[in-house]
């Protein structure tokens, strides 16, 4: 079991990339910065499981919170909310690092 690379309350950025194939990181958060709410455990990588790989590697799963204003800054005021998305570690990088 590998140690989680990120800690609760840490700011993380979702990688902005578009590899082909099965992905469980939604487009609307890619390239956006959020805050780790919780380290949710370790699970086999769905991007490998999806292709029949029963030996898919274990990845740390994080619950990451995004602010509406960061996701959709062009939206008119009135919608102030958070979206929490479950994201695997291979899709996250420290918020300071430039993508």
């Amino acid at each position: 079991m590998s140690q989680p690379q990120f800690q609760t309350s840490e700011r993380v950025r979702v990688r902005q990339w578009e590899p082909p194939g099965h992905i469980r990181t939604p487009s609307f958060i890619r390239g956006h910065t959020g805050i780790v709410q919780q380290i949710a455990g370790q699970f086999r990588n769905p991007e490998e499981l999806a292709y029949g790989r029963k030996d898919a590697r274990l990845l740390t799963l994080y619950r990451v919170a995004f602010a509406h204003d960061d996701l959709w800054p062009e939206s008119p005021p009135g919608e102030q909310h958070a979206v929490i998305v479950d994201i695997y570690e291979n899709w996250l990088e420290p918020a300071e690092r430039k993508s």
Partner: peptide
């Protein structure tokens, strides 16, 4: 980068 959003990936659309 162009967003190659696939049809099932509809959050925010």
């Amino acid at each position: 980068m162009a967003n190659q959003r696939r049809p099932h990936d509809m959050g925010g659309a």
